[in-house]
Every structure is written in structure tokens, then in C-alpha cells.
Design a protein around this nucleic acid. Structure first.
Lengths: 107, 107
DNA sequence: CCCGATATCCTGCTTTCCGATATATCCTGG
DNA sequence: CCAGGATATATCGGAAAGCAGGATATCGGG
């Protein structure tokens, strides 16, 4: 799973959101570090929908502007959980090794 | 930074390794989960070298076979450390949200 | 004697990223 | 009253990246 896909899934965990809302939520949850590009978003959303990790929740027309809401599927929840575990393992092994490297210099 | 790049840097933390050795080390440190493709490796190595996160350590000819060793630069160590922190943040926010989602169902 | 492991590298296909652009509405400030 | 920023979706095309496959070459085991 790519990083933008991971962030989109994370943004959808608490409730369905529309495209622009996802962009804002990703920026918020990453404390401004990640700014999801709209050019990236729709491609990611299409791929996630094709894989059935997200699905179209509903469409609203608010003040003449279309809002298309996506929600996380149960499959999506499991995929996000598995990916988080996988990334955590990568982080752990990198940190273990970095710690050993510095410990050697100290010893 | 892409995931293969992250894994290559991790594999080089403890000592310089040559291409094929990196492939094996990545497979070992990920407990068989990640199998780095050779077609991916050399492109990654070139990019990391261009960014000065790794550098050519030495070349050996062992039993008629060339071995080209790469080592992590100090810049590479810092980049790996920063990337690990960034990924850890992504994992943390995903897990926080997943926990809340399940807590709601429980409450 | 062939095959798997070891070892590097290139080519080309596919996927993905993302800047740019297009379209359209609403609100605020000047 | 109008310019510009925020809100909102979508597409195009270039660039970057991933990766399967194949070329090339040695060594050891069955």
C-alpha cells in the first residue's frame, strides 16, 4: 500500500468524508506535515474503491456544489490495521539497528 | 522516501553490504515478508547514492565475481532516523483512530 | 552436466504521483 | 461590484518508481 492510500484510509476511520474533506483531514492529522495533492487523491480513491477498501457512501448537493462521500469498508479497516502493523515492524527493525550502531560507539 | 529505499538503508546500518547481500539482509530483517527485487534494488541504490545517503565503500573480486559494497553515510543515518520518526507518526495516528472506532462500538 | 545460488546490470511495461488546468459556487474585503 | 480565496470535483500528461524478465558469468552439488 502506498503512503497516500494509507493516509486516506486513516482519514476515513472516524466517519465518511468527501474528497476535499479528506485532504483537510490528512493535513490536520499529520499536523501539517502531509499535504495530499488533489491530483493524487482521486487516483488513490479510485484504486481503493476498486479494491473495495472504501466505497461510495452518499452524494450531497450543498449550495450547488457536489459532495461525494466515501466510507471505509470492513475490508478497509482490516487492511489499514495490517498495514499499520507492517509499517510498525519496519520502523522497529530500523530503530533497533540504529540503537545498536550508537551503542557500539558508546561501548 | 520510498519503502524499498527505507529497507536498503536499514540493511546498511550495521555494516557495508553489496547488492545481493542487501537483498538477503532485507529478507532476513523482515522475517521473509519483504523480498526486494533486483530490478528495484539497483535503481534505489543509484538514487540513494545521488542523494548521498549511501556511498560506494569498496569493490572486491571474489572468485571471479564482482562485489560492490555500499555503506551508509552520516547523512543517510540521519535520513533513516527522520523517516522512521515520520512513519511512526503515521502508524500512531492510524492506530489511535482505529482504537477510538472500536471503543465507540464497545461503549 | 545441468541447475541453483551467487552476483551485477539493463530494458521496457505498468503503476503511481502530482503539477497544471478546467469548471463552478460562495464569501469577504476593498 | 468585483477580485480573490476557499470550497469542490475531475482530467491530462510528464516524471518517477517498481519490478518482471533476461543477459552475462562463476562456483558447487547432485
Amino acid at each position: 500500500m502506498t503512503e497516500p492510500a494509507f493516509l486516506v484510509l486513516t482519514a476515513l476511520v472516524d466517519r465518511p468524508r468527501h474528497g476535499y474533506g479528506i485532504v483537510q483531514e490528512v493535513e490536520k492529522l499529520s499536523e501539517g506535515r502531509m499535504r495530499l495533492k488533489v491530483g493524487t487523491l482521486y487516483g488513490v480513491l479510485d484504486r481503493l474503491a476498486a479494491d473495495e477498501l472504501v466505497s461510495l457512501d452518499r452524494e450531497e448537493v450543498l449550495q450547488g456544489r457536489l459532495r461525494r462521500y466515501y466510507r471505509l469498508t470492513e475490508h478497509g479497516v482490516r487492511a489499514l490495521d495490517a498495514e499499520a502493523a507492517r509499517l510498525a515492524e519496519n520502523v522497529r527493525s530500523a530503530r533497533d539497528r540504529l540503537r545498536d550502531r550508537h551503542a557500539e560507539g558508546t561501548a
